[in-house]
Simulated scan of single mutants.
Amino acid sequence: MPSRRHVLRIGGGLLAGLAWYRPSLAGEPVEIRMQGKADGSHVWFDPVGLHVQPGQTIRWVNRDPGNSHTATAYHPNNFERPLRIPEGAEPWNSDYLLPNEAFSVMLRVEGVYDFFCIPHEHAGMVGRIVVGHPGSRPSGGSAAQALPDIALQAFPSIDEIMQRGTVRRT
C-alpha cells in the first residue's frame, strides 16, 4: 500500500505536468476580418497584426458588405510586388472575396509575413503576421520604397505584435 506522502508526490508531479503542458492550437484557424465603413470611406484588416505559431491556419473572411477584398502576400509572384514574406515560404493570393466569402492558408515557415488587399493597398489596407520567433524581418530599402507610404505607416511593428499577440486598429 503506497504511503500518503508517495501519493501526494505522484499527484503533485501530475499537476505540475498538466500545468506545463500546452496543447497546440495549430489546428484552430485564426480569423482576420476584412472590414469597411458602409460608405466605403475606410477599409481595414482586423486584426492588422497577429502572432501565431508555425503550422497555424489563417482564415480571412470578408465582413464588409459593400466591398470585395483580397488577402495577398507581398511576393514577386503576386504582381511583381516586393518580397515581404520569409524566403522559402509559399506566397498566396485569395483572389477577390465577395462579402461573407473566406480564404485560408497555413503558415509553416517562421518569420514575418506582410500582406495587402489589391484594390485597397493605396488606402492602407495591409496587415502583418509574425510566425514563431522571426529571425528575419521584412526588407527595407527598395522593397519599402515600392510600397505606398500609407501602407508602410499602417503596418504594426514586429515588437508590438510580439508583445501584444494581436494588434487591432480601426
Score class of each variant (00 low, 15 high):
W92I: 10
P76E: 08
I129D: 09
A102W: 01
H6W: 11
R5V: 00
E80P: 03
A144Q: 12
N78C: 01
A154L: 08
D149E: 09
P99E: 07
L98P: 12
T72S: 08
R168K: 03
A26R: 15
D149I: 01
Y113I: 13
L97Q: 12
S139I: 05
H42R: 14
K37L: 05
D159G: 05
T170N: 14
T72M: 12
H122T: 06
M1C: 06
R128M: 02
R169W: 00
Y74G: 02
E101D: 15
A144S: 12
V131N: 14
G127Q: 10
S157G: 14
Y21K: 12
H69L: 00
D95Y: 15
L8C: 03
F155K: 15
A123M: 15
A71E: 00
H122L: 03
H133C: 08
D114R: 15
H69K: 04
P156I: 03
V105Y: 02
L14F: 14
L147N: 14
Q56N: 13
E90D: 08
S139P: 06
F103M: 06
S94N: 14
S68P: 14
L83F: 09
Q145L: 08
M106Q: 13
V112C: 11
L14T: 13
G141W: 11
R4L: 06
P99K: 07
T72E: 12
P134Q: 09
A38M: 05
V105K: 15
A102K: 14
W20F: 11
S139K: 12
E121D: 07
Y113V: 11
V7E: 14
R81K: 07
W92H: 15
R63N: 12
V105F: 05
D159T: 07
M162L: 14
Y96Q: 15
P134I: 07
H122P: 00
R59I: 08
M162P: 10
G17F: 00
H69A: 03
P2L: 10
E121N: 01
R81Y: 00
R108K: 11
N62A: 02
A151Y: 09
G11R: 15
A71W: 01
R22F: 11
D149S: 01
P119M: 05
V131W: 09
